[in-house]
Nucleic acid binder design. Structure first.
Lengths: 134, 134
DNA sequence: GGAAACTTAAACAATTCTATTTAACCACCC
DNA sequence: GGGTGGTTAAATAGAATTGTTTAAGTTTCC
């Protein structure tokens, strides 16, 4: 019955960090090297990242495949396509054009280049109009 | 560079489960025993629980308990309540009604069903107006 | 009562994670 | 150049997690 993902050591470092201490100062307090503090902090943040991604996955369980945006598509064509597909399924997307593009930029920054889609994107939609990109 | 907390096996089970399959059916599909499916599902959900607790920790590094939303509440009643409690503490929430609901949907997708709250929700608030749901 | 769905416990091998050390490295700033 | 703050790589021992099986328990529904 463990509580979270973070070990006591990792929480300790994150707490001290939040207080504004340097890695060296923390190293002195908890009795180890600054290199070790760096490593502990890094893996702690990695754990936080994984926690976020895990909850994101849980969300996609509720979502169903909507459509695929092919590589090479114009970025502005994405919302159009999504709105059309969604309304054909009787669902109202909860974002406007700008909102959708922002959401896409946040979800898959590496799939985009300027105004174009670099790699295929799968779009998932919720009954509530929430959208997820993969 | 692992993605989330869940293994492929665990995701597989959760997906099939969400589709309404029984553990025995899943066991047949993925080629193992139903007891094993049970174990995998259990540890998957345990991982989700830990993911949530981890993010809560990150937030509570500087947030305080605000209020509890009881199961059965209308989703639209949540922002109302949060705004009232927050202003009674002299803090301005950094989200509007829609923003708050989106945030809630992202934080606890499985606590919600359509427009209703399925399970009790704890609300935490930051001095900066940031909000966290548990 | 009996069948189906589900949970639990114990045990095990394989894998992964964690904390550590040491030694080297980058980027500033004075 | 030297100091401070931060990162990285390689190696290692110990701890934790994962998927599995087997066997014995529930709970639930007809």
């Amino acid at each position: 019955m463990k509580d979270g993902l973070l070990t006591a050591r990792q929480k300790e470092v994150l707490r001290h960090r939040r207080q504004g201490l340097t890695q060296q100062q923390i190293a002195d307090i908890i009795g180890t090297s600054k290199a070790n503090v760096c490593t502990i902090e890094k893996s702690a943040l990695e754990n936080v990242r994984r926690a976020r991604e895990t909850l994101q996955f849980m969300f996609t369980l509720d979502a169903r495949f909507l459509c695929e945006i092919p590589a090479g598509a114009d970025l502005l064509a994405v919302p159009e396509r999504v709105f059309r597909e969604a309304s054909s399924r009787g669902v109202k997307v909860r974002y406007d054009t700008i909102g959708l593009i922002n959401r896409l930029r946040e979800s898959l920054p590496e799939h985009l280049q300027a105004r174009f889609v670099k790699a295929d994107i799968q779009v998932y939609l919720n009954d509530d109009g929430e959208v997820y990109f993969e």
